[in-house]
Simulated scan of single mutants.
Amino acid sequence: MRIPRHESPTRNIPKILESHTEDFWEDVEDLRTEPSWFSNVLADAIKLFGLRCTLDPEADKLETWEACVTAMQVGSALFASAQATTGSIEYRIGHKMHTIRAGALPRAHAGNWLNAFWLACICREKKRMTELCQFPASRLRQADGLLDEYIYNWVEALQAYWLKRPKLGDKLVAAVEGTDPAALRHAPRDGVLQIMYPPMNLLTQLARGDQDKFNTELAKALEWHKDYWTHDEDRALDTEGLVALGPLGVCCLAVQAGFTITVESEYLPKHLLEGAWVNEFPT
């Protein structure tokens, strides 16, 4: 089955990439003294990744893989900074080591954790995945912002899946039940139902070992993703919607578990799904 990606303009992308890339690396350098910028730096890294995928929907170019790896490194560095016990850490972002000030805990919220974990899954960074899964959910609650309860159960479900903890089922059920619109207090309903819930459903099928149901639900997840990101013009122009980050992350877990993904889509860039670029360079 094929789910085509929605249209996105490409005419000015090279110029936008040049400008955003320069600003991004300046912000990375600023992390040496100011970890409060971490959320912005991670969002910008994901934006650059999306811009690359605009021009390279199958991710068959090295520059797209580099953008994906860089976003993964920023996400992991955020949580390394948040739990550092020294004044600063040395962390690879791009192709070199950077000094990063400790103290990013206010930015270490569950939304950033999910993005960091999905990126680590896509990059097959098992060590970083384990480190993220060892980050206590209780510390996520200390971060800035008001989030609904379901997201903490969702984080703990993913941590339980990866670390093979016994509470996977309970946490996954609690996360799914928490996406009921009646239970939401902060997050917009459409974002929860069309973006946040589908990866939970996919992980459920993965945990059950049901490959056929996984692919059936994956097709639905991508249709919901498309519906969400084409709801209005602003969303349709947002490069964040060009990759279905959560579904792609769970698909990469499924591939590692031996599943065959039969759904094709630019929302799931082929070479990222297959791990074609893994080990291309030190990360």
Rank of each mutant, 00 (worst) to 15 (best):
C53A: 06
P247Q: 10
P106S: 12
P198N: 06
C251M: 11
E131T: 10
V173D: 14
Q205L: 06
P4L: 00
Q194A: 13
F214Q: 10
M1K: 05
A77N: 09
T260M: 10
Y91K: 10
L51S: 02
V263Q: 13
A187I: 05
Q211G: 14
P35A: 04
G178Q: 02
M200N: 05
Q211Y: 03
T70Y: 00
F281R: 13
A108R: 00
F259V: 11
V255K: 15
H20N: 06
D27H: 08
N279P: 04
T283D: 12
S19Y: 08
G241F: 07
T54P: 00
E223M: 12
G103M: 08
L140V: 06
K127W: 05
P106Q: 10
L42E: 06
E217V: 04
G258N: 10
C252Q: 13
A183G: 01
P247G: 09
A77E: 08
L78I: 12
G249C: 06
D44I: 00
L163I: 05
P166F: 02
L242N: 07
L140E: 08
L272T: 04
V263K: 04
K226M: 06
A67F: 00
L114R: 13
N201R: 08
D27M: 10
N115T: 05
N201Y: 02
W162L: 15
H186F: 15
A183C: 07
A174Q: 12
A182I: 06
N153K: 05
P198T: 04
L218D: 06
A207Q: 14
D180A: 12
N215A: 00
T283H: 13
M72E: 14
A104L: 13
A221M: 08
A120Y: 07
L147V: 00
R208K: 14
Q134S: 11
T262Y: 07
A110M: 04
V243L: 07
L17I: 12
D148F: 01
T99S: 15
E233R: 11
T85L: 13
Q256H: 10
H225K: 03
Y267G: 09
S76M: 02
K15F: 11
A182W: 01
V250W: 09
N215H: 00
H271K: 12
A120F: 05
V69P: 01
Y228T: 04
Q83A: 09
A43Y: 07
L42D: 07
Q83M: 12
H98R: 14
S81N: 14
H186D: 07
D210A: 14
D23C: 02
E217Y: 08
P106F: 02
L237Q: 07
A143W: 01
L78D: 13
A84E: 09
L158T: 00
N279Y: 09
Y152E: 06
W224K: 14
P181K: 03
G249Y: 05
G103R: 13
A108D: 03
A67E: 03
C251P: 12
V250H: 10
R235C: 00
H6L: 03
V255L: 12
E131G: 06
L62E: 10
G145Q: 08
L114V: 06
E266A: 14
L242E: 05
A175M: 03
K167N: 15
